[in-house]
Write a protein that binds this DNA or RNA. Structure first.
Lengths: 220, 220
DNA sequence: CTATTTCATATTGGATCCAATTTACAATAT
DNA sequence: ATATTGTAAATTGGATCCAATATGAAATAG
């Protein structure tokens, strides 16, 4: 029998749909930090009951994206400058190592996909899409490493600072600079120079950190 | 007014109690990998309804400790040798850096607490407590860094391999070796030699990884 | 006897209802 | 007027009930 099949067991539950939507809204800054998440309100928005909403919120808390207090509810958690700096330090430690191990494993398809990402990033005039394209570029390269745990951890770290990174891309010509650095990283990957790709990635991250810290007063 | 007060808002909800208990049972290996978590059964054990159990399970899934399939339920997730190796690699990357930054910040109290941990570890004849004392020793030292995000990430990584680490301590005289290495790390910290503490920590982790990989067939 | 098809049971996902707690505000006393 | 107390609305945590799905055994057709 020939037939386009989908694995029904993988269809999303209400709670995952709510979780993904809230996660996206939080990391993109659509709900401000400190803003409370009202279960009833969210349940109505998704035309569901509060049960899946509560499951979604407890998952968000486990990811560090919200903080809850008993009988008071959940608020979107923000980051102090120190906390943001710490997460940039963390990324600067782990991402260079991941790309270093990824370079020898990169297929032509990987490099082509990454090239398409930075090309789209470079060409896009829409600041709202910069964040996504930036993440696509890096995660495409990292994925070649096959280091799933590292990738998950990086994703969580990115989620926590996504808002600040987007702000940083808009401010202070961050986007132009990121673009040049992306091209340099990509060329190092293409050349198979793992050490250089790692070092450029490290500088890319510490550079973004410095730029963000300088601008942090503007963001508050 | 003078009165021994407790912050009632911090009293645990049913779902956190269930979450903590399941987490402990899983990382210590009291529930085997692959074993299903029946909501009803757990709810009865804790004399509660399935609602807090489900919240607990969804949090465990977010931590990677269980995997759930829609309408089929949750099973304790195991690690392939490759996955375990990856997590050791991850630890070998991040923990040396954390201790390196912690050393200059260690107070006499920190060093004393850590000393007490390795002394208890060294003196304990009970294999079941080795895992806890081992974690206490390292986390006491790491905590001095004040790097909360790093500490959280390390805790998650430790949770994922805790079972294997415990097994490894029992097998192949892992405990004696760990003990000697703990003392060496502690002495480097006492001497304020951050670089050495970092390198010894790295060797401590990669050594445990090698030993575990050699024994991994025995564990399955 | 084997393969397929009911069909009953077990289990999970979600909706609705109730209890516990917080919050905002009016009422009261000093 | 100000501080305290009482009260009602809002909100969350949990229990119970119902619906959707999976599982496994009995029934049935070949």
């Amino acid at each position: 029998m020939k037939l386009n099949s989908v694995d029904i067991s993988k269809t999303a539950s209400a709670s995952s749909i709510v979780f993904e939507a809230l996660r996206k809204a939080i990391i993109e800054g659509d709900v401000q930090e400190g803003e409370p998440l009202r279960q009833d309100e969210i349940a109505k928005l998704f035309n569901t009951s509060r049960i899946p909403v509560r499951e979604a919120i407890s998952r968000l808390e486990e990811q560090g994206l919200v903080k809850t207090q008993r009988y008071k509810g959940a608020v979107v958690s923000g980051l102090s400058p120190d906390e943001a700096e710490e997460i940039f330090d963390f990324r600067a430690l782990i991402e260079p190592e991941v790309i270093r191990r990824a370079v020898p494993l990169m297929s032509p398809e990987t490099l082509e996909t990454a090239r398409a990402s930075w090309a789209a990033f470079s060409a896009s005039a829409d600041p709202m899409s910069w964040g996504d394209l930036n993440r696509d570029f890096h995660s495409t390269l990292y994925r070649a490493s096959g280091l799933q745990y590292h990738l998950d951890v990086i994703d969580n770290a990115m989620d926590r600072i996504d808002r600040y990174l987007r702000a940083q891309l808009i401010l202070s010509n961050g986007m132009e600079r990121a673009n040049e650095e992306h091209i340099a990283i990509w060329e190092a990957c293409l050349a198979g120079n793992a050490a250089q790709a790692a070092e450029l990635t490290r500088l890319h991250i510490t550079g973004a950190r410095e730029s963000l810290l300088q601008n942090i007063s503007n963001l508050r």
